[in-house]
Design a binder for these strands. Structure first.
Lengths: 214, 214
DNA sequence: ATAATTTCGTAGCCGTCCGCCCGGGCTGGG
DNA sequence: CCCAGCCCGGGCGGACGGCTACGAAATTAT
């Protein structure tokens, strides 16, 4: 039983070293990389079985790196390890060709499980994400479009106004429709995103560039 | 030479476990915590010599936690370990009473050095920041009056919870007070900031680092 | 040193706003 | 045609905001 050869990529050196220590018993960490471009080089050089990618990396983010690795190293399995639990990131990652998605909030044992699952050819999605979106996930995976593409342009418009701190009456005036209609759009938004407070909607909108937060 | 007793706080379990593995040879990790409130409890219970704090934590962020720990555990030395290198965070941290500031981009050896330095009563600032501090810190020292400084500790706490999408009832439960008290604090916040919606408050909190937006 | 004032945290009352359920109609495109 | 998106109304229960008040602590005045 040979240890799978593993490449680690994260811009936080401390985490990189910590991961190496945690995973050493079960995997052979052949290299580490601090940005997306370094991953491509290291993968080329060491031909690992598994590549663990953070999403937030300078230069080339993990999603984009995954897309390129799919081309250059089709033999390597890709796993995302990130703090971002948004569905838009999850779907973008799987569309880019990754096989696993684990959150940094997870326990190390879950990461080990994920790596073994993926190494065995299966897929793995963090249980923390499945809880968050529950039954919406299967439907989501079938959709061709990305997550924010889920929203119609009218819904994004309403979301932006909400995120700018407008109350429903104002939004209704701005759009020239009734308050009831605003509520209708807002309800659709909360259903699709699974977010039920103005505050959380605002955080989502800022993160996804729908509102600037200024 | 006895090992210093250390408390670790970070909302990313994987990093927590990695740190524990890395630091075990030189420090006695007496407890770990996943959010600011848990840190306060753990500190009370275990009376550590050193407390390592992340800034982005749910419920109560690391800066605010540091401020409280200064009161409740004056004997413990505080060190920030974060991805945020902005000077606004650095100065806020030192004003809150921390003795060390290390970036997650740093090597583990630097963190060990920082912990030992702080344990010995010295201060430590990550070398990745120091050059910037020299150039830009003066501007921060003569800043007029930090906008968030207008808020009390309790008000910042409520603001963070609001910005995390918590509803009043949840916040009341978390803080152990009545819903009306939560709303009173919120009213004071809206008066001081001139912001009257949860959405706009959230944008404000994210911009000022009171909430992370995750 | 003591009294007066301000600030902060706590909380109840009451009216409004919002979320969510129902219902309907109107349009444009597969 | 029918589905999806957009528009609108009713009604209900819970969430929220404004107002008021009181005790404790800190600050300032006397």
């Amino acid at each position: 039983m040979k240890k799978p050869r593993l490449l680690l990529a994260d811009d936080h050196t401390i985490l990189l070293e910590g991961l190496k220590a945690l995973l050493a018993p079960e995997f052979e960490v052949v290299a580490t990389a601090g940005d997306g471009r370094a991953v491509l080089e290291a993968a080329e050089k060491h031909q690992p079985d598994l590549i663990l990618l953070d999403i937030s990396m300078p230069g080339l983010n993990g999603i984009e790196a995954a897309r390129r690795l799919r081309e250059s190293n089709p033999g390597a399995k890709l796993i995302i390890l990130t703090m971002h639990g948004d569905l838009s990131f999850v779907s973008a990652a799987f569309e880019a060709g990754v096989s696993g998605y684990v959150l940094k909030q997870s326990a190390a044992t879950e990461l080990v499980t994920a790596l073994h699952d993926v190494d065995a050819g299966r897929r793995y999605i963090s249980s923390l994400i499945q809880n968050r979106v529950g039954a919406e996930m299967p439907a989501f995976m079938r959709r061709p479009k990305g997550a924010t593409g889920e929203l119609t342009s009218r819904q994004r418009e309403v979301l932006q106004l909400v995120a700018e701190g407008r109350v429903r009456k104002e939004i209704a005036q701005i759009l020239g429709v009734s308050v009831k209609t605003v509520e209708f759009h807002k309800q659709k938004i909360t259903e699709k995103l699974g977010i039920h407070t103005d505050a959380a909607l605002t955080a989502y909108a800022i993160r996804h560039g729908i509102a600037s937060g200024e």
